[in-house]
Design a binder for these strands. Structure first.
Length: 502
RNA sequence: GGGUCAGUAGCUCAGUGGUAGAGCAUCCGGCUGUUAACCGGACGGUCGUAGGUUCAAAUCCUACCUGGCCCGCCA
């Protein structure tokens, strides 16, 4: 499609040309006889300079009438200017108003979470949200590219199911023409069936959990990518997860530099996270690391670091306050803004300092056989710069369909990948049980209705083979890659407890 | 489900028992290169809701509602 206008992202290649650009007003500044309009068109933002002497009274007035988020069209010359983002600006020759916006609620200033979430449909236009959605898109395309390049077939698991898959999570229940039905919590079991048909498959779709979890890591609706591979064992499964994550990190660090900068993401940390192989710790080794001296030392150092930062910030705040009286108005505003930023960080530090003693206690007192808590996962990953793979968990804390470790029947051949920087579990999976009688016993032991699994048992009756797979949580992955503090900013319209609109 | 913090102008917040405040947004004016521009002015309030204490409540007490963060559960 040849477009009759130029998109902002293409402007750097058009220096010297006269072009048409369409967009919305992101922000504006003015001087006598001058308007500086930040035009946002979805591909980027460019500054449009409107000079009264060059455009005439009518167009100049049109530029002055534009309110934030008004739609407008500009014809002008693309000029190189090092001071601008992207290195270009547009010197307007004409300005046409397409739609004047009513007063726009989201200003280029601070807003609270609730206010922004109520206006998510508009918030998506803001820079950070825009950048996060672009990274999400790049992650999605990287995932497809990886699997397609490796010969996987993408297949969809059903969203409506007649039974609770693992019997653990709380599901959303529906009325399916008089029968009880549920929104899927995992495509896992159907994925296994599809892998027996195609060898290597992956699902890519929504999953649902009705748990009343209110944390930075939880959504009630989220997207999961679930590869399933026939003739793969646990070690091969871990290798797939590692390759997939490296492919994602490589794609984003290569193609989303501007977005990561907008998000304030430390790209060095993402690059460091690509070093392979990722550590592979057995659950037992992880428990030893968690309960050992190294973890206590690490947390002591973190506590010291936080205390040093706290003192530095308090000193800066006191110095700012001391010169506040003599400061001019603009300087006072900057001091006020800085004070707010300092207080936010001090609150975070105070929370960290409150948490560390309980983290230390939780780590030190951890007992073999339990599942890791959120703080234990965070503490484990603090020892490494890359994601960490933990495998061979106690069977009791894993799903019924996991294969047992032939070396130790207490263990299941499950594996989790923990993301760095406290982002927690982004991958969970393992090698699946192949023995029909074992699965029947497990279903019974877990109190699940055997009739619901008749088709699943068939997979073991007709050519049962070793196979493995895992689920990758898309939103947690996006949060980690973007450095977002909450998964609510990882998708366009996140569904959380108490959040169904917009 | 548990813990904890908060709710004051459209937004972000200050005000902790005695006249309801600031910055931003909006509107008006100034400035010929601004970068969350800047400067001057105007506009803007049922202090979450309901009770209570007090001469007097945004401020103290009780209940409820809504939200943030943390834990549990999970990807």
């Amino acid at each position: 499609m040849t477009e009759p206008f130029v998109r902002v992202e293409a402007l750097p290649a058009k220096v010297g040309d006269t072009v048409t650009v369409n967009g919305w007003l992101y922000n504006a500044r003015s001087g006598k006889g001058l308007y500086f309009l930040e035009l946002r068109d979805g591909s980027g933002i460019v500054q449009v300079v409107v000079n009264e002497e060059q455009v005439g009274a009518e167009a100049f007035e049109a530029a002055g009438s534009l309110t934030q988020e008004s739609a407008f069209r500009v014809v002008g010359e693309v000029k190189a200017d090092d001071r601008q983002r992207g290195g270009v600006e547009v010197q307007a020759q004409s300005v046409e108003v397409l739609a004047l916006a009513e007063p726009y609620p989201i200003t280029p200033k601070d807003h609270g979470v609730e206010f922004l979430m109520d206006r998510r449909h508009l918030w998506l236009r803001s820079q950070r949200q825009w950048a996060a959605m672009r990274v999400r898109n790049r992650i999605i395309t990287a995932i497809h590219a990886y699997f397609q390049g490796e010969g996987y077939i993408q297949m969809d698991a059903p969203i409506l199911t007649g039974n609770a898959v693992e019997g653990t999570s709380t599901l959303f229940e529906l009325d399916y023409f008089g029968e009880p039905a549920y929104l899927t919590q995992s495509g896992q079991l159907h994925g296994e069936a599809m892998a027996m048909a195609h060898g290597k498959i992956y699902t890519f779709g929504p999953t649902f959990r009705a748990e009343k979890s209110r944390t930075r890591r939880h959504l009630t609706e989220f997207w999961m990518i679930e590869p399933e591979m026939a003739f793969y064992d646990l070690a091969m499964n871990m290798e797939v997860a590692e390759e997939l994550l490296v492919a994602i990190l490589a794609a984003v660090t290569a193609d989303c530099r501007d977005e990561l900068e907008t998000l304030g993401r430390d790209v060095g940390k993402l690059e460091a996270a690509m070093a392979t192989p990722f550590p592979r710790l057995s659950y037992t080794e992880a428990v030893e690391l968690l309960t050992g001296d190294a973890t206590q030392t690490l947390l002591d150092a973190e506590q010291e670091g936080l205390e040093d930062e706290k003192h530095a910030l308090e000193t800066e705040r006191d110095e700012n306050r001391a010169r506040y009286g003599q400061a001019k108005k603009g300087e006072k505003r900057r001091i006020d803004a800085r004070e707010i930023a300092i207080n936010v960080r001090l609150d975070e530090i105070a929370e960290g300092l409150r948490n560390i003693p309980s983290w230390k206690a939780s780590a030190r007192d951890f007992e073999w056989g339990s599942d890791f808590g959120a703080s234990d996962e965070t503490v484990l990953t603090r020892h490494f710069q890359t994601p960490v793979i933990v495998h061979r968990y106690p069977a009791a804390v894993k799903a019924f369909y996991m294969k047992r470790d032939p070396e130790d029947d207490r263990l299941a051949l499950g594996m989790d990948v923990l993301a760095p920087e406290g982002y927690g579990e982004i991958v969970g999976g393992g090698e699946r049980a192949t023995d029909l009688q074992f699965l029947r016993d497990q279903v019974e032991a877990h109190g699940l209705p055997e009739s619901a699994f008749d088709w699943y048992f068939d997979l073991r009756k007709y050519g049962s083979v070793p196979h493995a797979g895992f689920g990758l949580g898309l939103e947690r992955t996006v949060a980690y890659v973007c450095g977002l503090s909450h998964v609510r900013e990882t998708g366009p319209f996140p569904r959380l407890l108490g959040r169904l609109h917009p």
